[in-house]
Amino acid sequence: MVAEEKNNQASGINSNGVIVLKNLTKKFGEKLVLDDISLSIEKGKTTVIIGPSGCGKTVLLKHLIVLLRPTSGDVYLDQQRIDNLNEDELNQVRTRYGFLFQGGALFDSISVFENIIFPITQHYKITDWGEIDALVKNKLSMVGLDGFQNFYPAKLSGGEKKRVALARAIALNPELILYDEPTTGLDPIRSDVINELILKLQKELGITSVVVTHDMTSAYKIADRIIMLHKGKILADGDADYIRNHPHPVVQQFIHGQIDDEDLLILQSGETTSPSQFVSQNSKK
């Protein structure tokens, strides 16, 4: 079975992907987070990365835009190696990307409007403010938040922050968008709005997306390909049907949101004490 996965992976590594990772390993100190990962992200497709919390999804996503540099291994963008560029060169490359951060990462000292125009002001000299107003209005209505221009991030809910952050990530019309848990913290209907938006951006503008998520509904809906990370390695890699029917128990447990048998045993064997029992055993202060 392991051999099968290897084959599947090997076929995934055609060097004509937009972003290609070759033998990428990332350690923080002694801690191994990504272990010899090779991956090719195809142009115009939506690749979804799933896996339990803390398995290194965010770390992997940040390597695709070299916000983190690999401990070993290479990152290529359009056949050009980018992990060894200096920061100035990288900043040129990064304008081709949009990145939606897990917590939104809005600048909290400036308004929603200023957040969205930030990438524009950094790379263009603005002469026509009318055009900018229209652009911000357009991006905000795409995420269903037109009218929030003058709000400050502190006044927004978690889901709203994330949607404003998405509007900011697409402000420069990037060709590649990396989403870190775009639907986490959103209600099911809002989640579906984001799913539709991701699909729309892909279909109409041919944008390449990489989406990190553990929302399987969203994954099945948007994915051309799903990759499951586990213990720093790629455990499964294929389309939605392939993943749904994947024989590996860890994959099945994850996609069905089931607890591990051993963990279940520990939970069931432990006695639960009711609050009144607790109080009776401990004298009150």
Binding site: N91, V93, R94, T95, F101, A105, F118, P119
Partner: peptide, 8 residues
């Protein structure tokens, strides 16, 4: 990281 991701 967000500032970097926007090429600044």
């Amino acid at each position: 990281d967000a500032i970097k991701s926007m090429g600044t």
